[in-house]
Computed example of a mutant assay.
Amino acid sequence: MHFAFNREQKTGDKQDSDNKTLSEALSYFRDKGIKISWDYREVWKAEHTHAFTVSKAMCQDVLLEIKAAVDKALTEGIPFETFQKELMPFLQRRGWVGIKIQPDGTRVELGSPRRLKIIYDTNMRVSRAAGQWARMQRTKKVMPYLLYSLGPSKEHRLQHERWAGLVLPIDDVFWNTHFPPNGWGCKCRVRQVTKREATRRGLSPLPEINPVRWTNQYTGRTEMVPEGIDPGWNYNPGQSRSQWLKKYAQEKEKEFQAVFG
């Protein structure tokens, strides 16, 4: 996976668009603070908008080092193999590798290649999705529709296959919960299209959303998750970031008025 853009190969509007997407993706990622957590279910859905976390990374220096490595990979387009090679020596020195046996006998997986791949893929894809959404909002007057398409996975979830080719307005509520990635390892994507192309393809009726009851065994909270989406992925990272920034600006304005008003 290679998310940075080769500026020498891009020209004109395409290069400008790619550069802005990368810039927005980096801004989304760098605005995050860090949150130490034992279980991935502690930081849920839109909370990832402002908190970078890696479950079971209980030391701040380990969490910050992983975050810095992801930042570098996103900025420079570093592939996973390089990301892992550069990060692993630090994790080995800190003892955050392999399988650890807890006092109660449970096995805990720390910095294994499998976990590092999940950390890499998840943060790269979600950050890019947030950057893409921000760019799409700026250009939606010209291209007001989104086309759902499958990614390069060898096998696709059945429900995601049903969404392939779906064309809906960019402001449709469907994208509030179904803007990809829509699960662990999901490589689905969307492409912004003009009204002319949307008309040619044929606008899609809003798909039937079959919510499934799911209980977070860690927190005890129960919620309804759309069928076909992994629990915790039924949110739009770019949209959540926009809402968070708006709320943050409003809070700062209240503080300013309280002091100088």
Rank of each mutant, 00 (worst) to 15 (best):
A258V: 06
V97I: 14
R114A: 13
G232M: 03
S242M: 12
K20L: 01
P113D: 08
Y28C: 10
D61L: 03
V70T: 03
T177G: 02
R93E: 07
E223M: 13
A164M: 01
Y120H: 07
Q15L: 12
D171A: 02
T49D: 11
G238A: 08
I209V: 15
E109T: 11
T219F: 01
F174H: 15
R135T: 03
T177H: 10
Y40I: 03
D16T: 02
S240G: 15
Y235S: 12
V212D: 03
L74F: 02
G232R: 04
V142Y: 02
M124F: 03
P231I: 07
E251K: 15
I99G: 01
L150H: 06
Q60G: 03
R189F: 05
A46E: 13
G105E: 10
H156P: 13
K72C: 11
A198Q: 12
E155L: 14
I209Q: 14
Y145A: 09
A134T: 01
T75G: 05
M1N: 11
Y40L: 02
G105S: 08
K252A: 14
Q243F: 03
D71G: 11
E42N: 08
F90K: 15
I119E: 04
L147E: 14
S55Y: 02
E8M: 06
S17G: 11
Q257N: 15
K140Q: 05
N123R: 09
R191G: 11
Q257C: 11
P207L: 09
W163I: 08
P211S: 07
P205C: 00
G151F: 08
L22F: 00
R30Q: 15
K141L: 05
A164N: 14
M224V: 04
F260T: 03
R241F: 06
F80A: 15
K154R: 13
I118D: 14
M1D: 13
G33F: 00
K67S: 03
Q84F: 08
D121C: 00
E65W: 06
K85Q: 08
R200P: 00
I78G: 07
V54I: 10
K141H: 04
G131V: 00
G95P: 05
